[in-house]
């Protein structure tokens, strides 16, 4: 007798497709938050499958800190073009120029936190009522408690203690005027699941994820790209290392790891053997024990 069983990747994919279609059905004006990182690429890929042979019925939104790796932007433009999707860019530089946010100062200055203001403004201007994101519950403690359909009040805030219960696969996207939702279709995926899925599906990624030579410097044990964006102390010597990035964020807060993994198979071996979480190289999470929870409450991704 045939066993009617799905592999875990197929089951996770089926769940994500269901959630993305639910967003298309329950909301009037959704969008995909697209950072050019592997998680949002995975979400976009699944969205493409969900509506095939139709096109993804919503735009991709990128919040550009102005400090993105050029490789990310290049990939983004090529990818969006291939999808035939609309791209909307929210610019942190514009928010700074308009005086809506003040840039951090000092050696560890990052525009990461400023993104929230630009993000909320982009949501408001475009009247998005649901934003799909690639956040995963295994990434961080506060995220472990977030729903698939995460309600945001009219100020874009998340209230972790007052979340709607989420039962079976019945998702409640009802909201009042001015409120919106963040929706996370790959909530149940781990870093390993994402990499295995990328391998299984043959998904293309920015070159930053694969081993390459780069001029870098080391700060507090984190390898940072040396390219004039992050101010370097004199003691922080520039060296050339063979590295890759496990996550892709703003250049000011994304650290690299030394790695020879030049293809997906090798990356998977490396992830399997790794004893550090991928956010271990993210200086933005290290600011305090509840750094992510605080940022999320304010409306961060």
């Amino acid at each position: 007798m045939k066993a009617y069983n799905l592999t875990h990747l197929k089951e996770l994919e089926a769940e994500a497709i269901f959630i993305i279609r639910e967003v298309a059905a329950q909301f009037e004006n959704p969008a995909i938050l697209f950072s050019g990182g592997k998680d949002s690429i995975t979400v976009a890929h699944i969205a493409r499958k969900a509506f095939f042979p139709g096109k993804i019925p919503f735009p991709l939104v990128h919040i550009d800190t102005g400090h993105n790796f050029p490789e990310t932007i290049e990939f983004r433009d090529k990818y969006v073009n291939e999808l035939g999707a609309q791209l909307i860019v929210g610019s942190v530089q514009t928010s700074i120029d308009e005086g809506k946010v003040v840039e951090e100062k000092g050696y560890n200055a990052s525009r990461n936190a400023l993104q929230t203001v630009t993000l909320l403004e982009t949501i408001e201007t475009n009247k998005f009522d649901a934003c799909l994101g690639g956040a995963r519950r295994d990434e961080e403690k506060a995220r472990a408690k977030e729903r698939f359909f995460s309600h945001r009040d009219e100020f874009g805030q998340w209230d972790p203690k007052n979340q709607r219960p989420e039962l079976w696969n019945l998702f409640n996207g009802k909201k009042h005027f001015g409120e919106n939702f963040r929706v996370f279709p790959i909530s149940n995926w781990t870093e390993m699941d994402v990499w295995q899925y990328i391998l299984m599906e043959g998904i293309e990624l920015p070159s930053l994820y694969f081993s390459h030579q780069r001029e870098v410097f080391v700060r507090d044990g984190v390898i940072m790209a040396s390219n004039g964006i992050v101010p370097q102390r004199e003691s922080e010597e520039t060296v050339t290392k063979t590295i890759r990035f496990r996550t892709i964020g703003d250049m000011t807060c994304t650290g690299a790891i030394e790695s020879d993994a030049g293809n997906l198979e090798h990356i998977i071996e490396e992830v399997a053997a790794s004893r550090q979480t991928e956010r271990g190289t993210r200086s933005d999470d290290k600011r305090s024990e509840a750094a992510m929870e605080d940022r999320k409450k304010q409306g961060y991704f």
């Binding site: 069983n5 799905l6 875990h8 390993m192 198979e265 071996e269």
Partner: peptide, 11 residues
């Protein structure tokens, strides 16, 4: 097939 047979796993 992945190096560790990961693609055959159940959930």
């Amino acid at each position: 097939a992945a190096p560790d047979g990961y693609l055959d796993m159940e959930l």
